[in-house]
């Protein structure tokens, strides 16, 4: 029983990522407002980025991936031990993901502004009502 509890408490960060992803998914599906849907999409993206960053982290006193005394001397004699540095590969991948997420946010907000200028509201059900009124009953 105690190792069962240790299994769940020891991986609390993974439960937090799953909780954040589900918050974002709930906002994308259940919220009627378009801006709330966009916020949910961004929360979903940052939860995935957080998961990748946490896979790069290491215990045991690993520091940020900058080689100490790497300039000139020291490196050629000893080399760099990989256990002393946090894995930088997921960081570089997630840098791209952050830039992509702000680009999608910009495009989504632009579309929301255009929808507001067309229909005068950001609520999904009211937009559907106005489309139905314009087309004469057809959804």
């Amino acid at each position: 029983m105690s190792e069962f509890i240790d299994f769940f408490v020891g991986k609390y960060n993974y439960w937090a990522f799953i909780l954040l992803m589900m918050i974002g998914l709930y906002a994308m599906i259940a919220k009627k407002n378009l801006a709330k849907k966009i916020i949910g999409m961004n929360i979903f993206q940052t939860a995935i980025i957080l998961f990748y960053i946490s896979t790069a982290a290491k215990g045991g006193g690993a520091s940020i991936p900058i080689i100490a005394h790497g300039h000139g001397h020291g490196l050629s004699e000893h080399g760099a031990r990989a256990a002393d540095y946090i894995n930088p590969l997921p960081h570089v991948l997630m840098l791209t993901a952050i830039v992509v997420s702000v680009a999608t946010l910009g495009v989504a907000l632009t579309l929301a502004v255009k929808v507001y200028h067309q229909y005068g509201t950001l609520e999904e059900d009211e937009i559907a009502d106005r489309i139905r009124a314009q087309t004469g009953g057809e959804p």
Binding site: T46, I53, A56, A57, I86, L95, I98
Partner: peptide, 15 residues
């Protein structure tokens, strides 16, 4: 805190 300083810079400015 997790040690991803470059990602933290980018998120603070862009995000």
């Amino acid at each position: 805190i997790m040690g991803a300083v470059d990602v933290a810079f980018t998120e603070a400015s862009v995000g």
